[in-house]
Nucleic acid binder design. Structure first.
Lengths: 254, 254
DNA sequence: TCTTATCAGTTTGTCGGACAAAGCTAGATT
DNA sequence: AATCTAGCTTTGTCCGACAAACTGATAAGA
């Protein structure tokens, strides 16, 4: 057992970091609620007693972290970090770690199955309406791979939402962001690809309506296996989610 | 179909954002590899033709995003975003969204089971050694909840690593960061809690060694059910992962 | 020869002040 | 009352400056 230290540890974090930390603490522990204003840069300068440049560096950190944002008039306010934005960062990290489509597929299988199970158990009328609406729109664009791929991604987001489990929602998002953009290629290259996709969605929605978990899991598996078979016609599962592919997804998102 | 536009869209992003985007692009598409230097602030000032303050704001954005870091001498270099740094941000987001322990538990059950399945299939000798080492250390501190809780968290990280699936590794991390800190409280408040935990780990490692997937899944379920029963003695599963709890985890991490 | 001390040059973190552009406010005008 | 305008505020950017920390190399000492 060490003796009581004479001095406390010296805090050597740079000032901009301390500014960011101080504001973060206020938001995390709820003293500043999402939507509430943080104050102007000048006010922060006065409160913290540092230069405006320093405050601004701190603000950038928090902004990137998704804890604060600027409203329409560019004033600072606290906000709820959007899963989507964070997921984008994570997807980027996955790219840089050169994960393979096999890893992506395996993880997505787990996460999507869990989503469906949750959705079958807990989907609300509202959730079902949203899914039905998506299905109707999908049926209309079954011959247009780009539009269909987008609706497919949305369908699975809605499914995760219907599970009422926000942790799951967040956990599946990064993988989904990388996984689903390939749908367009696959649907386009497999005969009847679009029709099979819509049919799978129809069965999934049906399973949720009937609260039939086994059917939900079964059709999710089939749906993803379809994706996999399609993908393997185009490329190897063991190829990494490449930079070129990222550029594609990237350009499309902008 | 719209006619060809006369003008291209005007880019109105602030300069610091453009600086960040430009550097990010170079890293994402691999022209700058992880570990390579970005250059000094002065060099960036010259290359981009903007002020150093502007460059520094851009740097903060990338730093927080985990794309660049400063090495021992504070020089800038590209880096692979660390999962657990990103996961920390996600955990924070989950807190702010006031997710419940029930959501956390359900999602973790899915993710940990998937980890074990992967580990049983693909764990290397090295992975098994690490797990065995962790287990040995756990057995030594079975009576000290704080130390044991830490090793428990590590055990599950190692398990995810053994699954050889980096997507899964990343997906489970945010939930785990919120989930496992409660272990300390639970182990301390349940008689034989520590012993049960170590026993579960022993069976898990054994299942991996024998490549027995069913046993791995079974003991993972038991292990987490144990957590759940313990947790319910202390608090309701439907309580949100509260700010107070976050403060606890937060203080411990500093 | 090997280690240590020194010293000048870089680089980062911070500061103060400045200014144009965009937003906001409130009084003036129709 | 609705609209317009002028002034104030705030943000984004720039400039120049300086102390502290770090680098690298040279000089001094064992």
């Amino acid at each position: 057992m060490a003796s009581t230290p004479l001095f406390r540890r010296i805090d050597v974090a740079p000032a901009y970091q301390k500014v960011a930390d101080a504001i973060e603490r206020e938001i995390i522990n709820g003293r500043i609620k999402p939507g509430e204003p943080i104050g102007t840069e000048q006010q922060l300068v006065e409160q913290f007693g540092v230069n405006r440049s320093t405050v601004r560096e701190g603000i950038r950190v928090l902004e990137e972290g998704g804890l604060i944002r600027r409203d329409s008039s560019r004033r600072l306010q606290a906000c709820l970090p959007r899963y989507n934005k964070l997921a984008t960062r994570l997807s980027r990290a996955l790219i840089l770690h050169e994960v393979t489509f096999r890893e992506l597929f395996e993880a997505s299988m787990t996460l999507e199955v869990a989503s469906v199970e949750g959705a079958v158990e807990r989907a609300t009328e509202e959730n079902i309406r949203e899914l039905a609406d998506n299905l109707a729109r999908s049926a209309e664009v079954v011959e247009r791979p780009a539009a269909l791929a987008e609706l497919d991604a949305e369908f699975h987001v809605l499914m995760a939402k219907a599970s009422q489990n926000r942790v799951l929602q967040l956990a599946r998002e990064p993988a989904a962001q990388l996984f689903f953009p390939t749908t367009e290629m696959i649907v386009g290259s497999v005969p009847e690809g679009g029709a099979r996709l819509v049919e799978a969605h129809r069965h999934l929605l049906d399973a949720i309506r009937r609260r039939d978990k086994a059917a939900g899991v079964l059709w999710t598996r089939r749906h993803l296996q379809d994706w996999r078979r399609g993908f393997e016609k185009i490329a190897s599962l063991d190829r990494s989610v490449e930079h070129t592919y990222m550029e594609h997804a990237y350009a499309a998102r902008q």
